[in-house]
Write a protein that binds this DNA or RNA. Structure first.
Length: 219
DNA sequence: GAATAGATTGTCT
DNA sequence: GACAATCTATTCT
């Protein structure tokens, strides 16, 4: 059964959540298709949402950059091994959280990291959570750690069902191929040859995409 | 605008 | 004990 939409005021969110079948597909396709979709978190504090403009695919045992590299299975990575359409949230660098979307069948530890959003709802709440009073909206969810901070996501949300839970991804129009760029992934230099694979997808021209201008495609 | 350093702790060896 | 799918301030050009 398909879940109901979290309660949000913005008209921009007048779309249905993506169903399980969206996530039950090859990871690179899910990654590319996530661009333009709306990530929403309805919490007790309120609702916050943003349009996905940057993602990275992590492809299981054979991908040395993935947490599941070599089939590594620990309490932290357990969610990656679970069924598709769930959130894999982990803690890094002693201070940041990152959200992923689990893809493919249970037992196949692949996922897509959400790296950046363009805020579309709950901007004031995002500012509060980020401690970011002044400055442009497009800085609020720029980079995976910032996304979690702005949406109020922590490991409590690890394993949360994206189809029925308070954290969902709503459908939205597809980003045209001409606006999509692919590059190597960020921060995975330790992964040897796998570090060079073009598994980062971004919306060309979006200010919210992380990294320097040359990397974001902003003119 | 670009490069660099420092912060800070869970997770795995 | 080493390192990590990062962010921000600072210090340059």
């Amino acid at each position: 059964m398909r879940g109901t939409r979290p309660p949000c005021d913005s008209d921009v969110l007048n779309e249905r959540p993506l169903g399980r079948s969206f996530y039950f597909r090859p990871t690179l396709r899910v990654a590319r298709d996530l661009l333009g979709k709306i990530l929403v978190h309805a919490s007790a504090e309120g609702c916050a949402a943003g349009r996905i403009v940057e993602v990275e695919a992590y492809r299981g045992p054979s991908d040395r950059a993935a947490h599941s590299a070599g089939g590594r299975r620990t309490p932290r990575t357990e969610t990656m091994y679970g069924p598709p359409g769930h959130a894999y949230v982990y803690f890094v660098y002693g201070m940041h959280h990152c959200v992923n979307v689990v893809t493919r069948a249970a037992g196949v530890p692949e996922a897509v990291l959400i790296r950046a959003l363009e805020p579309v709802a709950g901007v004031e709440l995002m500012r509060l959570r980020r401690g970011f009073a002044a400055g442009p909206d497009w800085r609020l969810c720029r980079g995976p750690g910032s996304v979690c901070r702005a949406l109020g996501l922590t490991r409590v949300h690890d394993g949360s069902d994206l189809v029925t839970g308070p954290l969902q991804i709503l459908d939205a129009s597809r980003v045209a191929a001409a606006r999509v760029a692919r590059t190597p992934r960020i921060g995975v230099d330790y992964a040897g040859a796998h570090a060079a694979l073009p598994w980062r997808f971004l919306v060309v021209g979006s200010r919210a995409v992380s990294g320097t201008r040359a990397r974001t495609g902003v003119a």
